[in-house]
Design a binder for these strands. Sequence first.
RNA 1: GCCUGGGUAGCUCAGUCGGUAGAGCAACGCAUUCGUAAUGCGUAGGUCAGGAGUUCGAAUCUCCUCCCAGGCUCCA
Length: 663
Amino acid sequence: MSELNVELPDGSLRRLDAGATALDLARDVGKRLAKDALAARVNDHLVDLATTLADGDRVAIITGTTLEGRDVLRHSSAHVMAQAVTRLWPGAHYAIGPAIADGFYYDFELPDGAHFSDDDLERVTEEMRAIIAEDQPFTRAEHSVVDALVLFKDQPFKVEIIEAVERGGSEEDLSEVASAAVVSTYSNTAAFVDLCRGPHVPSTGRLGHFRLTRVAGAYWRGDEKNPQLQRIYGTAWESEDALAAHLHQLEEAEARDHRKLGHELDLFSFPSEVGPGLAVFHPKGGLIRRVMEEYSRQRHEVSGYEFVYSPHISKAELFETSGHLDWFAESMYPPMTLDEGQQYYLKPMNCPFHLLIYKSRPRSYRELPLRLFEFGAVYRYELSGAVQGLTRVRGMTQDDAHIFCTKEQMAEEIETTLHFVLSLLRDFGLNEFYLELSTRPPGKSVGADEEWAEAEATLEAVARNAGLELVLDPGGGAFYGPKISVQARDAIGRTHQMSTIQLDFQEPKRFDATYVAPDNSRTRPIMIHRALFGSVERFMAILIEHYAGNLPTWLCPEQVRVLGVRDDHDDYAYDVAKTLRADGVRVSVEAATEPLGSRIRKAKLEKVPYVIVVGDEDVANATVGINARGSNTPERGVSVATFAARVHEEIAAHASPEAPAWR
RNA sequence: GCCUGGGUAGCUCAGUCGGUAGAGCAACGCAUUCGUAAUGCGUAGGUCAGGAGUUCGAAUCUCCUCCCAGGCUCCA
């Protein structure tokens, strides 16, 4: 019998019988691997375990503990879900069902316009378990386009995909089939066959650690002009433990939810009397905002920004000039008509106002770069379904600045700005970043090709120089220019788009902004749009979630709470508070009307960084007992001066005690 | 805007078949004086999101509106 050699990931060679499959290889390596194997990678292509190997192939066996393996599990789970749905709703059309981060989904169109309800998730789950228990094999087959069209004649979405692929389809379509010429399918039983490039797990019995999470509507091909399909989301893992760990992480994220914490900590609310997406800040939330804004102001001042103010409303003309009405009229609040038919709009952006300030008098090249900063409140009529907590609102405050500079200054100015942005974000405790470069949106932009090319090249050069990971976002720019956005990773690994730096050749032109150059010519300045927090509201939300409500001491509305053990210690408690307050610490006293344990618990629940307890010994020795947030071992007998110095230092360093290990 | 859920005391939630609205916590009052995450007793608190309908009778069934959540779309 002839033999063949394959190369394993560690570089070693392994001899197999001719005709051996990837599964045979796994068996040859070890029982355990054969048991865990889900798919294989042969010469950089993911394939089924049943794939026959050839001499010289580089082969890696994929198991469920890898990202690729989980993708296979999830993709296969999606197929099982589609099979379950077609069993329960005969005649259902199935569209696409990919693996996504942490899970999978599948889009369906149920017969007679039926919709899934939440209760259906349980039925589908049961049916899936039945299919898994039947341990059906995933059998691959390849068809010509013509044959495939016949095979899927009752599945209009599949037909559409096959036809699109034939015409040279998109990446998304190609993921459903093998290639433009060969249509691959997988069938579990004669009754269920699906279009798919694969690979899949060998049989449904390899699945099972899944949970269907929610039903949702989703437009076919993501286009709101297309019919809306019914989507079911699920999560799937290689083991029950991994599934449980994932569900636990979801709970963690929920416990950090800024909407929940904002309510519990009495920071802000969204009174329904005001309207969706419009927040009011309570005293504690207001204090956090004020500290954030004050710090930002100081940093900007030192970095050469000048502070301006502009009104919340303006005549339509301004936004016609800027172009916003052409592009975004639908997401602006409708105009109010005043005086002889004059229309006024709530402002969705600050830049037009800053341009007018720039234009208020002739400018010289000697003034550039001119950096105008404003905490500008803007209003955007977001779709009602898009509004979400403080992260997506209809009224928000941007920490917005527009920098006017010459073309020669542009690259350096962007670089300076990027460093400034990162430094400020780090001061708020965010430390992990990557950059995203968004380029010209096709069909949704203005300006000459050369200008865009130059702007994109400039931004890219600065971004590449920054020493951070750079991700490309083709077509993600604004209508007037490309942008760099700073993405930050939070404490539980989620990424948030934070700051954006946008280069704009267009607006200065539309407003006919100029400066007098050294040669006495009138020259067009470049404009850089940039926001660091993005919006103050959203940034606060991200910080709350990043810290799970345990804000660093300098940002805490209440930094210290002093408790007397008995009510005859209250006078001393007030004295201690007075001393700390004189040192600039935000401190309160809760008088001893409740038991000490109860008052400590209350302060802990409010996430106050320091609970100070004072009793007989402290009164006698001018000391305090310190119960720091996150600590279970109080310190006793610390002098008031020592404690004050410690808190003072911590505030200056933007540091804080540990977050509590439990909530 | 679209799809699926949801809205009962300040908060978390119960409320059976359509038959007088319930608990815990919080608040308030009184008592308690305590050394590190819940002291006891009592009081008050509701147009069951709002409106219309069905019914002898609606928190409960139907319709409309508002608001919230998760998605889709959008995000200057």
